[in-house]
């Protein structure tokens, strides 16, 4: 780590206390996050010209100094272990968009099939910002003024390295679930879909027709067939699922990264052998059962 230059810290830098099981950044080197939205987010931070505090913040994020982090409507709250015994509280508040502004964004998305498809599928397309621009707003904070940050550390420079560390981890989290961007911008996750694909009247009637009657606990049937199951065996209905050839824990790849994972080995890698072993064993079992008759 470079000692050159003024790192804005006073009194002379003390080493932070090691935090047990802090959240560890998954990005080991280079830029944080791979998605464009993560880069844009980090770009906002880097626009603050923090100098060496950026580097320190990055190393805090990698070594697990951030103990807790929570994303909520309109902002982020986190706890960071610094050099003092008591960890610091960090908050980032962002200006929320109003409901009229969100409606305008929704209309812009609806007119673009590609944007709509991507968002319906849970993907964040890069040109989403064009939809915000059409609505006359921005997705990312355009200037430092749109962002309120605070940290309980004694460092008088704001933003400090603790805040930088949180910023990096939030960037990673956006990478995993970019819709959290909407959340910190003031739109609840559940509302995202209705924003641009509001159900039409036709949809509503189709949904109603397909509605499954709510499951309710029933009283115990006493008739012998239902209680002891005599009729069941006679019927012998066998519903068989066709087992597809397992494709190496594809389901985990679909799920993506685990939020704020604290281990060096990603979850999907750690459990991939379990998926392989289990699927093979189950295929053998099914084959043997089929052979048995």
């Amino acid at each position: 780590m470079s000692r050159r230059g003024w790192d804005g810290e006073y009194p002379p830098r003390a080493k932070p206390r090691r935090a047990a099981d802090g959240i560890k950044a998954q990005t080991k080197r280079g830029a944080f996050g791979s998605g464009w939205w993560a880069k844009r987010w980090i770009g906002v931070l880097e626009g603050f010209s923090l100098g060496a505090r950026l580097t320190r913040g990055r190393s805090y994020a990698r070594s697990g100094q951030v103990i807790q982090i929570a994303l909520e409507t309109g902002g982020v709250r986190a706890v960071v272990q610094g050099s003092r015994a008591k960890p610091y509280d960090v908050t980032i508040r962002m200006r929320e968009l109003g409901s009229a502004q969100w409606r305008a964004v929704g209309a812009a998305i609806t007119n673009n099939v590609r944007l709509a498809a991507a968002l319906l599928a849970g993907e964040m397309p890069e040109d989403i910002e064009t939809a915000f621009a059409t609505a006359g707003v921005t997705l990312f904070p355009a200037s430092a003024k749109e962002l309120k940050t605070a940290c309980s550390c004694p460092d008088w420079s704001n933003p400090c390295k603790h805040l930088a560390a949180v910023f990096y981890l939030v960037g990673e989290e956006f990478d995993r679930d970019p819709f959290l961007l909407f959340v910190v911008r003031g739109l609840a996750r559940e509302a995202v879909r209705d924003l641009f694909a509001a159900p039409t009247a036709a949809d509503a009637s189709e949904t109603a027709a397909a509605e499954v009657p709510a499951r309710r606990a029933r009283s115990v049937p006493l008739a012998a067939d239902a209680f002891w199951g005599n009729a069941v065996r006679a019927a012998g209905s066998e519903s068989r699922l066709r087992a597809p050839a397992p494709s190496d824990a594809a389901i985990l790849k679909r799920a993506g990264r685990f939020p704020f994972w604290r281990d060096a080995v990603p979850l999907e890698e750690a459990v991939a052998p379990i998926y392989r072993d289990a699927a093979n064993a189950a295929l053998e079992w099914l084959a043997d059962q089929a052979d048995r008759g």
């Binding site: 699922l241 289990a278 079992w285």
Partner: peptide
């Protein structure tokens, strides 16, 4: 049997 079918298709989390 249903459980084995699900596991064979890696349908578990």
């Amino acid at each position: 049997r249903l459980a084995f079918e699900l596991v064979a298709g890696q349908q578990f989390l």
